[in-house]
Amino acid sequence: MTAENALEALKARLGGKVVETSSFRGDDTAVVTPEAWLEAASALKNGLGFDFLMDLCGADYLPREPRFEVVCHFYSSKTGARLRLKTRLPGGKPAVDSLAGLWLSADWFEREAWDMYGIDFKGHPDLRRLLMYDSFEGHPLRKDYPLKGRQPRIDHAD
């Protein structure tokens, strides 16, 4: 199954929950509603042959609303097809279902997205910071995090 077919198949399965799709020079993207996030990922894995979650990350589009995006890249080791799945989340309390139950690799990706953007993944087994230290306040890759905002753990000279 090629990725174009996968986009069509995904639309056929989810109907109106697929907000938009696009294909540009082999980049095939589907945007789904946050409520359909887990359903879409599950369909890609179990029905459409995408057996590898390559990446999951957050993105901040301040001042757009909905402000945040969660982006997944899937790969099929059988056909070589790739597909990007996105969902858009509001700026207030961004939250979406965790994919860690489907893919073990989503575990740390989601912890990183929580650490950097403060996106809550509902149902994640252990949603702690991955890169920053526990005493760090805020989420450093948010566009409204201060450019020079530093939070040293020990006193600095100067």
């Binding site: 890169l131 450093p140 040293p152 600095h156 000279a157």
Partner: peptide, 12 residues
């Protein structure tokens, strides 16, 4: 020059 990096170890 970002949120994560010590700007020179002579600060420590």
């Amino acid at each position: 020059d970002n949120y994560a990096t010590v700007q020179g170890i002579d600060k420590i």
